[in-house]
Amino acid sequence: MVPLNYYLVLSAMLFAIGTAGVFVRRNLITILLSIEIMLNAVNLTFVAFGRALGSADGQIIVFFVMTVAAAEAAVGLAIVIGLFRHRESLNPDSWTALKW
């Protein structure tokens, strides 16, 4: 059996990669993908804990999270498309209309 800690470490690493991606990447879609990586890391944590605790709750929560994340991604991409129509660019640095 793979010990719980291995799963937790893996998900922590995934979470960290996702977080770094959000801060570092300069393309909107990639930022979105990084956020999805973070959410998947969370899913992994839930499933791992669920298994360790021997209850199905963890997997059920994952269903919820996946569904909601999908809906959110749909909305987010629609918003990004709306923005793309104005600027023809997916680089977050190019929008300075809202600054200090």
Partner: peptide
């Protein structure tokens, strides 16, 4: 400005949700 607000809100909101 409205679009930009939506994108900023979405990205940071999703990030914080994570």
């Amino acid at each position: 400005r409205s679009n930009e607000a939506a994108v900023k809100y979405f990205l940071l909101g999703a990030f914080s949700l994570g």
